[in-house]
Design a protein around this nucleic acid. Structure first.
Lengths: 330, 330
DNA sequence: TTTTTTATGACGTACGATTGACATATTGAA
DNA sequence: TTCAATATGTCAATCGTACGTCATAAAAAA
């Protein structure tokens, strides 16, 4: 049986109240007593039962972190940043991988409520506004609109797309395609799409959109992309995520297309992973670190004071990482 | 204020006791009352406060999942499997990224205890046996020895190394190097090392070991590897992880070494990610799915009955995934 | 009709810690 | 010496739920 507050009191030769006071640093306390109590705690390897403390209305210091999947390096890295920051501030991360499953997301949401989490960082959004609004907990959303009261943190998707399209253009591409992972409004991909479309228009070029759905397996994506590369005559592709860009590079190589001479490719996300292991890929890097920090920062502000005025949308700048896949002399 | 059991009782026009009975399906209950209660629960959007339930001695249904980092695709995928399985069985995952930091790991361990987790899956091990033994909770370890009482789940590291080395040999390599991510006993890498060494001996070949420390950045690794490839005359490399293998492939390409003609390379892990995005790499695939399932399975057995007899070491079979990096005709 | 079985309510205690009210003792300063 | 500040103890209520004990009533079986 784990030791409890009373055991510590007995061990230290003080009253339970005093032990509680020491733990919470509450009221008058002499150094001597404090030390006695601390020693007793160490001796018994005592950890205050946070369940009991939470029941008292104290915070649980639990934060629900809801993403579709951590096996995607982008989310893996973002979740890692978030977890790190939360840990530093004394919070614990409950990891929820919704796998883009509406039902799972709903169950998770309820579970988080039942577990009295202090707040939620939501990076998976398959549910409607209503479901999120009735949660009644501080929520910060990553990169997607949930409701008018839930702040959003995202990278500058529009500007990223503009940069990407311009980069392709400046390096000589004229038949520039967009490979988008989905085509849903309210999704970040859609701002990237808009950025692409408007830039193409400004450049007086014809836009070409292809949806490479994120629900497809890599093999199917590869097949589809190979087909597009074979039938269409393309010299520039902006992929709304790096992983799709990797497939494009591979298919291009297999088809004997030279990159960047025949085909310029640019991705989006710019994870550390991509930078480390695919330094040939030009990409729009999201500020993963800053986004993680900000998500946590804002959430904690809301937790400390639920009436804190927050902007509805925090847009963080992106950065073009120019590499060989778009520019011969990088 | 969130609704409580009493509110539900009032709403449903029954006694609190009855509501509790409905929730826990305890004692005699008519369909009619059940429905009334369920409707009231839905009406008020009521979620039993799991904090309060836990305090009452029930399980918390929280599991601590301790790994060094989820941004590494291998751990990302494994954690995802674990989280999935746990979720299916009604458990919640508290994610802990120790970042190979001893202090962080210790703090996390204490935190998990304070949070009354029902058990721990430990995939980060920088602490000594004692620290893990005094946790006093069901623990299952991934791929590393923690103590005599803590079961281990791992892939067949020895056999994997044997397969890898043989594969290189059978494809003609004779100067076969081992690129190991560390050189600590008790670590899985060490069994891979042993497998390599013994196979080399059996083949009457001279072993060559190089440590490519996992604490180095990708750039430094690349530099070091380039140097080795330049000075030493090598025709086969077994890397104890896939990411290092990727760097080797890239450096070889930059040095004009043809793979697999001049140099054969084989990695270890075989994540879905590698299979999707680097289908050229021959690798020893760990059964990530099975390992995740087994880790959870064993842990829950221990939780349900702490005296369950478990084997001390569960070794799951690995599979050679033969691709172009080791064999010209794959 | 009598006895079981089924269905619900009322009440109290427990889980482990927090916290306020109140009492008492030991200091040190005025 | 006397008052205030400091230091500790006792006691009880509280958080939201679970569940055992009793009591009671209705429905079903004997």
């Amino acid at each position: 049986m784990r030791p409890k507050l009373n055991d510590v009191a007995r061990e230290a030769g003080v009253s339970p109240t005093t032990v509680s006071r020491v733990i919470n640093n509450h009221g008058y306390l002499s150094e001597k007593t404090k030390n006695k109590v601390f020693e007793a705690m160490k001796e018994l390897n005592y950890q205050p039962n946070s369940i009991a403390r939470s029941l008292h209305g104290k915070q649980t210091n639990l934060i629900g972190v809801l993403f579709s999947s951590v096996s995607n390096p982008f989310f893996g890295e973002l979740v890692e940043k978030i977890e790190n920051k939360l840990f530093k501030l004394g919070y614990k991360t409950i990891l929820c991988n919704s796998a883009d499953n509406k039902e799972k997301e709903r169950v998770y949401l309820n579970m988080l409520i039942a577990n009295q989490v202090d707040g939620i960082i939501a990076g998976a959004h398959n549910l409607g506004i209503k479901e999120y609004e009735k949660v009644g907990l501080p929520i910060i959303s990553f990169d997607r609109y949930l409701s008018d009261t839930i702040p959003i943190v995202s990278s500058d998707n529009y500007q990223g797309a503009v940069l990407a399209t311009q980069e392709l253009y400046q390096n000589g591409a004229r038949t520039i395609y967009l490979f988008a992972s989905s085509k849903t409004p309210n999704s970040p991909t859609d701002r990237r799409r808009t950025g692409y479309l408007e830039t193409m228009e400004r450049l007086n070029l014809t836009a070409h959109e292809k949806v490479i759905s994120s629900s497809m397996t890599a093999t199917v994506k590869a097949l589809l992309i190979k087909q597009i590369l074979t039938t269409d005559s393309i010299d520039g592709i902006f992929c709304t995520d790096d992983l799709t860009a990797l497939i494009v590079l591979r298919q291009a190589r297999e088809l004997g297309l030279r990159v960047p001479q025949d085909l310029k490719v640019i991705g989006y996300d710019g994870t550390q992973f991509i930078q480390n292991y695919h330094p040939e890929l030009t990409t729009i890097a999201q500020p993963i670190n800053d986004m993680g920090e900000l998500l946590v920062e804002l959430l904690l502000q809301r937790i400390e004071d639920e009436k804190t005025e927050l902007k509805h949308h925090y847009v963080l700048p992106v950065k073009l990482i120019r590499n060989q896949s778009s520019s011969q002399f990088d």
